[in-house]
Amino acid sequence: MGSVSYSNLKNAMIAFLVPLPSILFYLSFQSAISTPSSWSSLWTWCYHHPLLLANVLFFFNVNFLFWLIGLIQSSHWMIDPYWTVIPVMLVHYYSTHPLAQYQWWRSRIVTLLTWAWSVRLIHNYFRREKWQWGAREDWRFTDLSHRYGRHWWWASFFAIYVPQQVFLIGLSLPFYVIHSVNQPLSMWDLVAIVVCVSGIVTAYIADTQLYNFVSRKNKEVPILDKGLWYYSRHPNYFGEQVWWWGMAVFAWNLGHGWAFIGALANTMCLAYVTKLVEDRMLKQDSRAEAFRLYQKTTSLWIPWFKSSPLGLKSKDA
């Protein structure tokens, strides 16, 4: 018990300290630009390239440092909780960069929505992990480590961390757009807010229903087929996609529809993750038959009414 508590405390301290290099660097940059006469070529570059700077900080502080810590601990757990933290850091970074220009209310609304999304997701993560820091890594990473074997130490950098940069920087592109364009609010901002809130609420309800189902451990009920899960096989994934597409609406409204690329990449990734999850369910003998029926009758993502499997139709006729 004592070793578990020590490990939990150690991982919590590491998690709180690990973003310090980026934070301290950015604070140094902010301090330096207050006196233009002291600008170096480095600060000039940081000033003129906010999006590239975000990528550089991500590469060294997340890709490299998180990977190094993962190798030392033999567990790449840290990227999971930080998936919920990095977008919050990015929205504040873009809003405080010296080149930022934006509509004040839109910025505050998007920042508040991002905090709400983050709090929901981090709560779900720790609730699922029994409030432990780094108790385990994502099962998909573990499966990959078995597949790569002795090459996993270097392959993990490209299999885990480089894609995280692509997805998180890509998903956060609307934050950059929102803090680069100063236009009055419009009805499309309201639409974007409604879409984002709908995504957060849907994902929260779905994850809570899943958590309650797993916590009960009722062996007589092999799969969750109640609540939102009656209408969708992955309503939590659906809610997460809706949230990010809502952010894309903000950017589209400001004339930068290209920022949807992150939401599109995330949807494609979730399609692959969905396949992995369903394949895993089908490998469990106690659930396979029930899940096959569930697949035939229930919508994959978008909540919709049940359909009857062909086998049941012919049997009832």
Results as ranks from 00 to 15, higher is better:
residue 216 R to K: 15
residue 182 N to R: 10
residue 1 M to D: 14
residue 98 P to Y: 12
residue 44 T to A: 12
residue 28 S to C: 13
residue 265 A to L: 15
residue 237 Y to K: 04
residue 115 W to D: 08
residue 260 F to V: 15
residue 89 M to E: 00
residue 51 L to C: 00
residue 184 P to D: 11
residue 184 P to H: 07
residue 41 S to Q: 07
residue 34 S to N: 13
residue 190 L to F: 06
residue 265 A to Y: 12
residue 234 H to K: 10
residue 270 L to P: 08
residue 138 D to N: 11
residue 195 V to L: 12
residue 144 L to D: 02
residue 133 W to T: 03
residue 180 S to G: 10
residue 7 S to Y: 00
residue 22 S to Q: 13
residue 52 L to E: 06
residue 28 S to T: 12
residue 171 L to N: 13
residue 293 L to N: 05
residue 147 R to L: 13
residue 156 S to R: 06
residue 245 W to K: 09
residue 223 I to E: 02
residue 310 L to H: 08
residue 101 Q to L: 01
residue 79 I to E: 08
residue 156 S to H: 04
residue 273 V to H: 05
residue 1 M to I: 04
residue 255 G to S: 02
residue 167 F to T: 10
residue 289 E to T: 11
residue 25 F to Q: 08
residue 77 W to D: 01
residue 306 K to S: 08
residue 99 L to V: 00
residue 41 S to D: 14
residue 13 M to C: 06
residue 282 L to M: 12
residue 224 L to A: 09
residue 155 A to M: 15
residue 293 L to C: 06
residue 195 V to D: 05
residue 153 W to T: 08
residue 137 E to H: 09
residue 151 H to D: 13
residue 33 I to S: 06
residue 242 V to H: 08
residue 106 R to N: 08
residue 90 L to N: 05
residue 119 V to S: 00
residue 48 H to P: 01
residue 67 W to R: 12
residue 118 S to V: 07
residue 230 Y to M: 05
residue 212 N to L: 13
residue 253 N to Y: 00
residue 306 K to G: 01
residue 17 L to V: 05
residue 122 I to P: 01
residue 140 R to N: 05
residue 95 S to A: 12
residue 134 G to N: 03
residue 159 A to C: 12
residue 208 T to G: 00
residue 185 L to V: 09
residue 35 T to F: 05
residue 79 I to H: 07
residue 86 I to W: 14
residue 313 K to R: 15
residue 246 G to L: 10
residue 316 D to V: 06
residue 154 W to T: 10
residue 274 T to N: 15
residue 270 L to S: 09
residue 95 S to C: 01
residue 213 F to E: 07
residue 16 F to V: 09
residue 165 Q to M: 15
residue 44 T to W: 09
residue 251 A to D: 01
residue 88 V to C: 13
residue 32 A to M: 11
residue 228 L to H: 07
residue 172 S to F: 00
residue 104 W to P: 00
residue 117 W to H: 04
residue 35 T to N: 15
residue 305 F to W: 14
residue 128 R to M: 02
residue 184 P to L: 02
residue 262 G to K: 02
residue 221 V to A: 07
residue 5 S to A: 14
residue 259 A to P: 00
residue 307 S to A: 11
residue 293 L to V: 08
residue 244 W to L: 02
residue 109 I to A: 11
residue 40 S to K: 02
residue 17 L to Y: 05
residue 264 L to D: 07
residue 45 W to F: 14
residue 152 W to E: 03
residue 217 K to S: 10
residue 76 H to D: 12
residue 224 L to N: 07
